[in-house]
Design a binder for these strands. Structure first.
Lengths: 214, 214
DNA sequence: GGATCCTGACTGACTGTTCAGTCTATGGCG
DNA sequence: CGCCATAGACTGAACAGTCAGTCAGGATCC
């Protein structure tokens, strides 16, 4: 019994290591420039072992993509539990999506998004997965907004349409920021996306505790 | 003289053919799954000739990316000259970006965007180019809006911020639509992006020339 | 006859995948 | 308890296919 468990645990740990390594590598070099030899090296194993676990390179990489996205959403969901005020929650969503840079380790490296999209565009399986994950993400936004409505913080509105709009806006801004657009830095993106949210939701301007600027 | 011109013309035509073929192929299969042999075949030439013109595969593909993006923007700019009314112009921008499907031949196949982004994320040269092109795109939006302001159609506003916001929103929605998101179809995306524009710009709801519906 | 355009044949490097077999540990069996 | 059979984890080495890029030379046009 203990034996079986050990065996399974070893396998699971290995798989996870490999997925994490693959995700990191994809984010760095891109999907197609990631060699299974690289992944193997990162986890201190032979390329053959990677194949042993995942059967094929494509399988490993697409699983890594899914794995990474999923962990991003669950992490965000977790984060949301820390507060209930609508404005703070929106801020958390934005903060969590528009993280300054790649210090987020394995959560949401932006490079991954691009490859996920590119892959989804051409491979129905990945496409389905991505759509599902995105539905989850929108659902999260919708729940946050609905909670705000229920709490009387804002007037009722079409939450689904808002979620689509706002989620897409966030995506688009992430693209700009991730690509180092000289005109769109993180702060500006943040300000824009929060501004639109507040305006669309009819939230009054945030009364800063410390308002130094004129 | 005529000789030189002929020679140059031949070379230019060849280059263009190759760029177009490469762009199409990238859109279909993706950047890294595009072989120079495929490009060569499409233009009825030998792989060696492709190398003869572009020196290296990477050079060909990145040039193709640029070429395609550029032709998209110029085509859009052209389109814009057909009208001067703000509302119609916004509609043209949207229509031109959110084209129903891949029947747009060589203009803006969405698959290209994804690969362009992925490539730009990791290669500074492409990154610079993309930023430049995007600046052009935003500039176009800004000019349209500014014209609307100047014509007294809308109140003055921060056009740059609007351009960033609206352009990003458009990008984000394109992603959803391109990836066949079951919740976000073209019509809905159109409605959303135009709705936001009208709201942010303070444009009154469009008075349809033919308003049959209640 | 010289420049430009073009090609077929080749190659060298890379890399996913296979395979035969090693090592370890477990669990049963006498 | 000691021994063996079995399974799972793992690897080194080789295989096989792919492809970007080279090269020496042919065609074409002025």
């Amino acid at each position: 019994m203990a034996a079986r468990e050990t065996g399974d645990a070893v396998a699971d740990v290995r798989r996870d290591q490999m997925l994490a390594a693959a995700a990191t590598l994809i984010a760095e070099r891109g999907f197609s420039d990631t060699r299974i030899a690289d992944v193997a090296e990162r986890v201190g194993a032979s390329p053959a072992l990677v194949i042993y676990y995942f059967g094929t390179k494509d399988s490993l990489l697409t699983e890594a993509l899914r794995w990474s996205e999923r962990s991003f959403y669950t992490a965000t969901e977790e984060m949301l539990r820390t507060t209930t005020k609508l404005r703070d929650r929106l801020q958390i969503l934005v903060e969590w999506t528009l993280v300054p840079d790649k210090q987020t380790a394995l959560t949401g490296d932006w490079g991954l998004w691009f490859d996920l999209w590119a892959q989804a565009f051409r491979h129905p399986e990945v496409k389905k997965d991505r759509a599902e994950l995105d539905a989850q993400w929108r659902d999260l936004i919708m729940r946050v907004i609905q909670a705000g409505v229920d709490a009387g913080e804002i007037e009722p509105l079409d939450v689904e349409t808002f979620a689509i709009m706002w989620g897409s806006l966030l995506d688009g801004l992430v693209v700009q920021v991730a690509l180092d657009d000289p005109v769109v830095n993180v702060d500006r993106a943040r300000a824009i996306v929060l501004g639109v949210a507040h305006k669309e939701l009819g939230l009054v301007a945030p009364r800063r505790r410390v308002a130094r600027k004129s």
